[in-house]
Simulated assay, not measured.
Amino acid sequence: MLTAALVMVLGLTWGGVALATPQADQAIWQSYYQKRFPNVPKEDFINGVYAIDPVSRESWEAIEEFPPYEMAISQGEKMWNTPFANGKTYRDCFPNGPAIAGKYPYWDKERGMVVTLPLAINECREANGEGPLKYKKGPIADILSYLRYQSRGQLTKVEIPEDDPKALEAYEKGKQFYFARRGQLNFSCANCHVQNPGNLLRSDILSPALGHTTHFPVYRSKWGEIGTLHRRFSGCNKQVRAKPFKVQGEEYRNLEYFLTYMQNGLPLNGPGARK
């Protein structure tokens, strides 16, 4: 049986109503998870699998008392305040201060592309004569941790300009990516996080997709360090034995655009800690 969210992305109808807009997609998406997990308050979905599994939540809350990402936040703050070789700092690129994560990702109409926060950070660096940071881990994860920590509580508010068909196209490409099967295992993102949240995959409980973007970057016990959202995208592709796409390439930026839009209205709570 097709779920509401699957019907949504197949471009069919649900309850006799055609779903043709991002706004309709988002309403169906969020309603689907709230109906599937009726005892979970909407805002609690930002806590991932810990919103639906009380056993693992207890261990996670103990970890959060002494969060493993504190050092990354400190390192990121130092990066934010340290001048570049030309004497300028990140503040010259982001004059409104470090609490800026809620703005991203956004559609840059002039360039016709999705701009993510990691991309903006590296564009700032290059504009000031500095080399770009690698996108999966290390310093990029540190400064993202600081910026996301400063932005905690901001509501996700991704906009898709109605007057720009290219923006809608980027959203649709991200949506198609999320539901496209790939790799030797022939899995899509949706197979795990739309069809099967709450179910076991080996020994892991699959998390619901609602809230997935709010808590990145994350410290994963599996990694033993902080990693970015696109590192997680890449890892998921590898897990289904598919060749990952370029981090911060168009495919993953469009995916982030779609997936973050689906979380509109949820507060940011990054950086986070996960298994």
Rank of each mutant, 00 (worst) to 15 (best):
M8I: 00
M8C: 08
M8T: 02
M8K: 03
V9T: 10
V9E: 10
L10C: 09
L10A: 14
G11W: 02
G11S: 09
L12C: 08
L12D: 09
L12E: 06
L12R: 06
L12S: 13
T13P: 11
T13H: 11
T13N: 14
W14E: 10
W14I: 03
W14V: 03
G15R: 03
G15T: 00
G15W: 00
G15K: 05
G15S: 05
G16C: 13
G16F: 07
G16W: 02
G16P: 05
V17E: 05
V17D: 03
V17G: 05
V17A: 13
V17N: 04
A18G: 06
L19C: 11
L19T: 02
L19V: 09
L19F: 13
L19P: 06
L19I: 15
A20N: 11
A20V: 11
T21Q: 04
T21K: 10
P22E: 01
P22Q: 01
P22N: 02
P22T: 06
P22R: 00
Q23H: 09
Q23P: 10
Q23S: 15
D25E: 08
D25F: 14
D25Q: 05
D25T: 04
D25I: 01
Q26H: 09
Q26N: 09
A27R: 14
A27T: 14
A27L: 12
A27P: 11
I28F: 06
I28N: 11
I28H: 12
W29F: 15
Q30D: 06
Q30H: 03
Q30S: 10
S31W: 05
S31N: 13
S31C: 04
Y32P: 05
Y33K: 02
Y33H: 12
Y33A: 12
Q34A: 08
Q34V: 07
Q34R: 13
K35Q: 15
K35E: 08
K35Y: 04
R36G: 01
R36T: 13
F37R: 13
F37V: 00
F37P: 03
F37I: 01
F37G: 05
F37T: 02
P38L: 14
P38E: 04
P38T: 00
N39I: 01
V40E: 12
V40W: 12
V40T: 14
V40F: 14
P41G: 10
P41F: 11
P41I: 02
P41V: 03
P41A: 08
K42N: 04
K42P: 14
K42E: 04
K42R: 15
E43Q: 08
E43H: 10
E43V: 04
E43T: 03
D44L: 05
D44F: 05
D44Y: 01
F45V: 08
F45N: 06
F45W: 01
F45E: 09
I46G: 10
I46T: 14
I46Y: 08
I46M: 12
I46L: 09
N47V: 00
N47I: 00
G48M: 00
G48N: 07
G48T: 02
V49A: 07
V49S: 05
V49P: 12
V49W: 00
V49Q: 07
Y50I: 15
Y50R: 13
Y50G: 07
Y50N: 12
A51R: 04
A51S: 15
A51V: 08
I52F: 06
I52S: 08
I52W: 05
D53Q: 08
D53N: 15
D53F: 07
D53K: 08
